[in-house]
Structure formats: C-alpha cells, structure tokens
Design a protein around this nucleic acid. Structure first.
Lengths: 339, 339
DNA sequence: AGAAATCACGAAAACGGTTTCGTGTTGATA
DNA sequence: TATCAACACGAAACCGTTTTCGTGATTTCT
C-alpha cells in the first residue's frame, strides 16, 4: 500500500527542511532555482498533493459548504443541489450534504455536526418540523459563531440571513390568473398545511388573483392534503363534494394525483378540469396529459444560494446587511390547461 | 460574534493545562473529581464541541465518506444516497457528495479532491464516460493509498473492490418471462448503448429469457436509444417499423416515453402493447397507466454499500478479499402489463 | 523517619501544513 | 579589506486535538 506522501517525506528524501519544500512547491522567490526544480520534480513524480485536513486546520477554513435539505428523493431539491454543486465546484468548494428527513432533531444534529469544523457555511431549506415548531435556535447559533447561512425555498422571517426564494405568491397568482383567463369559473386550490412557508405564500397568491378578478374566495375550494399520506381518498371526496373546473396544486404530486382522480371519474383533462402544479419535474413533463406547472428554477436557486454564500465567505468585511433574492418563477404551459 | 471555544480557552480561563482539560472532558481517571467537575461544567456552559478538523488530523480519519454519482436529479441515485446517508449517519459518518455529471474528468477531479484527506473511503457509480473509456486509474490510485472503495450499480470487473449490484440479468429475465407468460409474442427491448454495464446485463437477461422459451432473438427488436436525447422520434419510427406487443425498457424514462408514443398512435396499454421498465420511481408510479417496473431497491443498495465501506474502514485487519453483493430485484406489477 | 507508591497535573510531541523570522554564506561596494 | 545587502535556507510557532511521559506533592508502608 502506497501511503500518501507528505512534505516531511520529501524533505527527508531530498535532505532539505520542510519549510524549504513548502516554499519550493509554492514557487517562492526565497528558494533557488535549482532547489525548486529538484523539489518540484520530486513532488510531481510522487504525485504530491497537500493534505486538505492540515490546510483546513491551518487556514481555519475548510472550503466545504454544508447543505441541509429535508429530502433528497425529490426533484426540486435535487435540482437545487445540482445548482449548488455546479457553482461551488467551480469556485473550489466541496459540498457536504445532509438530509434532515423533515425532522427537527436530525436537522439540529446535522447542523451541529457540520458546524464543528466541517464546513465554512450553510445552505439549507427548513424541515417541515422546524417550520412547524418555529424553533430556530440552531440557526442562530451557527450565525453567532460567524458561519454564514443561506436559506432557500423554505425560509423564515425569524432569522436574519441571506435567502433565495422564488416569488411563490406571484407564481401562484399568475397561474390562477391563467386559469381565470381561460374561462374557468370554479378554481380550487390543493395545498398542504399552512406551516410550510411556501404553501401559505402560494395560497395568498391564489386568493389575491381570485379577488382581483372578482371571484369569490371560498375555503370550501381549498383542500389541505397531508404531505406524506399518499392516499387519494381526500381528493376523490373533494371532487365528489365540489364541482370545480380547475385546480391549482402547490406541488407536482398533488397535480399528478389530481389528474389521475379526474380521469378515473371519467372526466377529461383539460376539457372538464384544468390543472396546474408547482415544480417543473419529470412527473409534470411525462405525465399524460402532461402537467402545466410553475417552474421553480431549482438549479438557478442553488447556484444563486451558493454564490451568495461563497461571496460572503470570501468577502473581507463583515457585511451585516442580508439580502433576499427573489427569483422569478415561470409558468410552463402543457396539456393540462387549455392553451 | 461568539467564536467557537477551544481547549486552550478553557485551559486559560480555568488556569489549568490543555492536557488536563482534554483528559477531564474524557473523564480520565488521572484527573481529580473536583477538577473534572469544574472543567466539565465550564465546557457544558460554553457548549464546547471538539473541532472535527483537528480530530481528523490527529486521528488520521475524517469520519466522512465520499460519494460520487453521475447525476443527482435522478430517482434511483437519489434513493441510493438516502440509503447511504441513513446508514452512515447512524454510524457517525458524514456523507460528502460529488456529482460527476457523467463526465470522466469531473469524476477524476472530484475523486482526487476528496482523496486528499477529505474522506476515509468512497462509494461510487461510474460515470457514462468512464464506462465508455474504460479508464480506471483513478480508482486504482485511491485503492493503492489504502482508501476503501465500494462500487454500486455501474461497476466494472477491471477493479477489484467491494461492489453492490442488483441482479440485472435476472431482473430482465423475469420481466421478459412475465411478458412471455402473459402471451406476448413479439417482445422488444429499449436499451442504451452497451457500454453501460447495467444495460448489457439486462440485454443478456432479456435474450436468455427469449431463448429459454423458444422465442427468436432479433436485433431488429432491440432499439438502442441515446441516454441524453429526449426526442421520441426514434421510438415512433420503431413502432412504425416493427409490430410488437410488448416492450422491456432498461429504465423508467424509456418506459414512460414508450407509453406516450403508444398512446399517441391510438393503441392501448396494456391491451395492445404491454410495457415494463426498470427503476421503481415516481414516474412509474404516477404515470397513466402506471408502469410495471423492476425495482432496483436503491435504498437497500445504498445502505449495503455504506455498511460494506464502514465495516472495512473499521476492521482491524486488512482483508484483501472483496465481496460483490447482489441484491434481488423485484418486479412491481402495475397497469402497463396484464395482471 | 525514610522509602515507595500513588495522585494530579503539566510539558511536549505528533498529525501536515504555512509563515515569520533568524542566520550563515556569498558577492558587491566603499 | 572591511561592510553590507542579497540570497538561500532552516528553526520554530501555530492551527486544535490526543496521548505519552515526566514530576512534584502527598500518602502509605516499613
């Protein structure tokens, strides 16, 4: 087994000091041309690479960024990670990912774990439980320790830090408006419990669009679905109970499930019922009919979050002014709405 | 800004030596009860946590495991990661994820980056380009440095290391057999280029099943699709050219796209054409009709890979005997095949 | 009382780098 | 020829831990 070579090995072998080796490899002017060439050649031959851990300890920066997301088997979060990865790698950072699995405790544990030296900063979306409990002390702690934090998508006003979100309200507003313009009369909303910041924003947008177009806002048309339970019964009951000709869904799966229920009731999409979802994932794209959806631009969001974090990490002065970047969502029109 | 507290701080504050603090916090018998209590109380008060980087340097182990996957916006790989995460976290390891984006160069760069101290070992699935080029020197290098490597799904015989795969051949065999038993006569295969280890395995299984049941194997019934290009034209052309009553697809998207094309041709699934895919993802589950599919058990695969890696990391003796764990795939019957 | 054992703690090395500062040797200058 | 830069390199501190070993003080034993 070929152990990794260190400065010490090179120094011993070439009978110079460790400092000389270190300087030679950095092409320091302090070292003579001959010595430098000798050392560099040797290092190259043995494929010397500095040990990241030692560098981290010395420099007090890891060049790692910690990402904590609620779930990874999820199109939107996966695209965000891809965006983060892409941007961070370009700027020489590694990405350490932890999954909170929507659990407050796991979020806290992961955060503490990473905060003890493993990363220079955090990018995260809050877990469902954290949004529900509204307990953000772990976020405050890392910020007090001087570790920058960027929240995305699932954010909170309680914490003053950089944030990246899409215009959830506006996205829901335009989607609803689209349905209205298409002539739909009774437009329902399928959403989750309100403790999700994004859901309540989207609900606001939906309601506002209705109001602005003199539609009545009825709580009867708002169906709150469990975000875990996959049973379609509540959806079927809803369609039995309420006669609607359009539904805005706050995510992709609700949209797909709604399509399915509508079809099973013998109704046609979009002729009888139009549907719009959120998250432009594979499901929306490949479903039959394909689902009109509000694209959240996860990749851009990830890139932007990474940029904000790294900029802050690398800026000299501590800027106490935090920014919230709002990305514009895009309505992707497909077959579940009338063109 | 509250900087992280170190042993040195505690030592200075309590006017003892760093060694005493360290020992006290480990409840060493060397230190008197009084001193220990004092130090422990102080550490608790200031929420002392040892610096992971320093520990890594000292112990020469990071408790990180590096995962390199070709793509993260991908149901199967995401489930594998979830499995790895779950298992690794339980055993006190962090997971560092890098995405090769199907590129050989990025795979190499990521690997070198992580190998210089960031991780104790690797779990990876080969990028498409790596499988195509058949250049595995980067894998050999990390192994020579004593870093354990576990390959999953996209593996190679060229490298002697632990592996986790599903019985791709067997999975394709049973799926094909299922179609045969259902009475289908002309069974096509939609696959990718052969350099993907999994695709060629699945092709073998498909052919073997046909042969074993006295079906003719015809290359005309095997359609090789590009794994990037999303254009359905080749599929349409195929159905125009060949009359088939069943298709086995080596992944989920091929399956979904095939359903779509079949439907657009005015044919019925599964009455006119039966379809089976691979990867039990959301698409299969939510498509209409839902897709019968071979479940690859990504989560189990991830857990198993993590277990193999960590076991090796923590075992005393260097065991030179490597294991290939073959997980059993499961056929999930849905609406795209006749029950 | 003197020797031995025990106790409680500190000094120092080590992990693998970077960096500041000191120093011996050389060559140029007055 | 004496003085002084410039040069080329090494020693040592430092990042935050752990751990071995040494040591002064107290206790125990003879």
């Amino acid at each position: 087994m070929k152990k990794k070579i260190t400065l010490k090995h090179i120094a011993r072998e070439l009978e110079v000091s460790i400092s000389t080796v270190s300087k030679a490899l950095k092409d320091s002017a302090e070292i003579s041309k001959d010595t430098k060439e000798k050392i560099q050649a040797f290092a190259k031959l043995y494929n010397y690479r500095p040990n990241n851990i030692a560098l981290s300890l010395k420099n007090r920066r890891t060049k790692n960024i910690g990402v904590i997301i609620p779930e990874i088997v999820h199109h939107f979060f996966a695209t965000v990670i891809r965006g983060i990865e892409k941007y961070a790698n370009n700027r020489g950072y590694n990405v350490i990912i932890c999954v909170s699995n929507e659990s407050f405790d796991k979020e806290v544990i992961n955060m503490e774990m990473l905060a003890n030296g493993s990363t220079d900063g955090f990018i995260m979306a809050l877990s469902a439980e954290t949004e529900f409990k509204e307990d953000f002390n772990h976020l405050r702690e890392v910020m007090e320790q001087g570790m920058p934090l960027v929240l995305f998508d699932r954010v909170t006003n309680e914490i003053d830090c950089d944030k990246v979100v899409i215009d959830d309200r506006e996205g829901a507003y335009s989607a609803t408006k689209k349905l209205i313009n298409n002539g739909n009369k009774r437009i329902a909303l399928f959403t989750t419990e309100n403790f999700f910041s994004v859901s309540s924003e989207r609900e606001e947008g939906y309601k506002q669009a209705l109001l602005d177009h003199n539609y009545e806002v009825s709580e009867n048309l708002i169906l709150k679905l469990d975000y875990i339970d996959m049973d379609n019964k509540p959806i079927e009951d809803f369609f039995d109970r309420e006669k609607v000709d359009a539904v805005l869904c706050v995510n992709e799966t609700f949209g797909i499930r709604a399509i399915r229920v509508v079809q099973e009731m013998g109704l046609k999409v979009p002729e009888d019922v139009s549907l719009i979802g959120f998250t432009n994932g594979f499901l929306s794209k490949y479903s039959y009919p394909s689902l009109t959806t509000v694209d959240q631009h996860g990749g851009d969001m990830g890139e932007k979050a990474a940029q904000m974090l790294i900029d802050r990490l690398e800026s000299e002065d501590e800027n106490e002014i935090y920014e919230t970047k709002v990305l514009k969502s895009t309505l992707i029109e497909r077959e579940s709405t009338i063109n």
